[in-house]
Design a protein around this nucleic acid. Sequence first.
DNA 1: TATTGTTATACTCTATAACTATA
DNA 2: TATAGTTATAGAGTATAACAATA
Lengths: 146, 146
Amino acid sequence: MDVAESTGNLADQLLRLTRRLHRAQKQYLQPLGITPAMSRLLRVVSHSEEPLRMVDLAQRLDVVPRAVTTLVDGLESFGLVRRVPDPANRRVIRVELTAQGRDALQRLRDARRAAAEDLLAPLGPEQREQLGELLAALDRDPSRSC
Amino acid sequence: MDVAESTGNLADQLLRLTRRLHRAQKQYLQPLGITPAMSRLLRVVSHSEEPLRMVDLAQRLDVVPRAVTTLVDGLESFGLVRRVPDPANRRVIRVELTAQGRDALQRLRDARRAAAEDLLAPLGPEQREQLGELLAALDRDPSRSC
DNA sequence: TATTGTTATACTCTATAACTATA
DNA sequence: TATAGTTATAGAGTATAACAATA
């Protein structure tokens, strides 16, 4: 098998796996009324020390700012986050976790874990670590190192 | 970091990587007028000995049959595949590569390779092999082994 | 009654472009 | 002019449900 072929196969494998991951997540998150993308945003919000701006969220999620608006809209409608205007700069809006959002996080974490666990079941602990390292290596933007 | 957390992180890493892969593929395939999903279907068609049924394609792509209809519609409109009724069973339709489709395959392969190459650049050959093996392990449906 | 493919419909995710309000 | 966020719009990808034709 030539290089192009095997490289393409890796891409196929990744896409197929992610499709399954998406499906599993959706299934597990559905009872909570939250989509995978919203869950991801909620996690980012919860992991930040201070409330993040919309732009920050877009950067961390690696999406365009417009996409964040929709996700925050959804989470806000469920009362899980709250938009807070920044007094220092009236252009910016910061996104805070609500008490309800904090409550939801644990259930979300369980759901996420169950979903990922379904897919990652075939891998042992050391293999997961290996996979994590490989993915981390890929996370580094190659265009930045030039 | 607990197990749930690290499992969730793997999921995040996968999703983030695939988002980038999707974007890169889209970019490289755009000049050819073909979407990543269409490209995938075209590859499956090209790798099969005999023309596959719509249902077979759905299975191999791991999507619902309805999704295949749209993809084949698109490829057919570009003249890359052709729907052929099966004489033996008038319910089934088989999808064949056209001469034009065969021509497009090489360009597609190059585009796909360039896209994947962008993302996989940080990995050496042995790391790619490692990643391929891990993904292959995950491809095996765990629900079948029970 | 089960299978094959389709029409109809809808939702998630993401993108670009143009606009508003600040700075 | 540049930045932060939004409205408006679009398109890719996928799903479910109802249906027609065939087996």
